[in-house]
């Protein structure tokens, strides 16, 4: 990724274009991601949103965006992207829209929409090789409705609908692999706590065409139960423990962009969040923690 202009932190955009004063929670990892992404994309984009926390960014009559915005519904943001992309292409072909007026079409949804209700529309958009960027902020649950578990919730996490001593019984769905199986233009994982890696990937995605996914782990103080000031730290821990591998898919190949070495224990990450507190008190659930660690180890064994 040495082909991007982002070599050092000082290369990152100094001018921030997403307005402030939104109703997102303090320490929202999703919003931090959007800030960084928007700074790089610039205002020449139209954001196609599905129901979720970020829907509350554009509240009549104000918007933090300098570019355009279209809220669709929870299930069909990629279809909205299809309509806008096609509409703009038709106008261009007819000479009714200049190249300068053209827009990058960006889908913005949470993990619930991306992994569940919106997956059919996403897969359809990939079948049709739609030229769009999909930004999924993954707060690992249905955040806007009070953090019930979604298909992206990690094993054992406590959510509003998995409050028992074992937490969520399922396993996080592998959206990266689902996308990659469609052979799209680009897929990458990012986290706002690693801004340089994120900036390079957005820049890279911009230069490519076809369906492109940026899957951002989005530490969520409200849903994960930690202090807002710890948001960046938790993002860093997710990477350092190997729980959130930073990687990208291009031309059929997956490359890890940051291999944590040495890897910290997953317990450091788990212990920092209230949603995993039941693994540590009243008694430490060693078996469960070891199981989570083993899954992470198995993942990295395949990488190394």
């Amino acid at each position: 990724m040495s082909d991007t202009p982002y070599q050092h932190l000082r290369d990152l955009p100094a001018h921030h274009i997403l307005g402030t004063g939104t109703p997102m929670c303090a320490g929202c990892g999703g919003l931090a991601t959007l800030h960084q992404v928007y700074d790089i994309l610039g205002e020449k984009c139209v954001i196609i949103n599905a129901a979720g926390c970020m829907t509350l960014l554009s509240v009549y009559p104000c918007t933090p965006f300098h570019g355009s915005w279209l809220y669709t519904a929870m299930a069909s943001a990629p279809a909205g992207a299809q309509g806008v992309r096609d509409g703009l292409d038709i106008l261009k072909k007819k000479g009714r829209l200049s190249r300068e007026e053209d827009l990058e079409v960006v889908v913005l949804t949470g993990d619930g929409s991306a992994n569940g209700m919106g997956l059919s529309a996403t897969s359809g958009a990939m079948d049709r090789n739609l030229d769009f960027l999909y930004l999924c902020y993954d707060n690992e649950g249905y955040g806007n409705t009070g953090q019930q578990y979604s298909a992206a919730t990690p094993h054992a996490a406590r959510t509003a609908t998995s409050k028992g001593s074992l937490g969520y019984p399922g396993y996080k769905k592998d959206l990266f692999a689902i996308w990659a199986a469609h052979n799209p233009g680009y897929v990458a994982t990012v986290v706002a706590a690693e801004p340089l890696d994120l900036a390079r990937k957005i820049e890279r995605a911009r230069g490519l065409s076809g369906p492109r996914l940026i899957l951002a782990l989005a530490p969520c103080p409200t849903g994960w139960d930690f202090e807002p000031s710890a948001s960046v730290e938790i993002g860093k821990l997710a990477v350092a423990t190997g729980i959130w591998p930073l990687k990208e898919y291009v031309d059929g190949r997956v490359t890890h962009t940051k291999i944590p070495h040495p890897r910290l224990e997953v317990r450091d990450y788990l212990k920092a969040q209230g949603r995993f507190a039941h693994l540590f008190a009243p008694r430490e659930n060693r078996k469960m923690i070891a199981e989570i660690q083993a899954r992470v180890d198995r993942y990295w064994q395949k990488v190394d």
Partner: peptide, 15 residues
């Protein structure tokens, strides 16, 4: 119209 330089918001939330 959606076009560069003329931002438009559609389907926004009302509180």
């Amino acid at each position: 119209s959606f076009r560069g330089g003329e931002p438009l918001s559609e389907g926004v939330t009302v509180l």
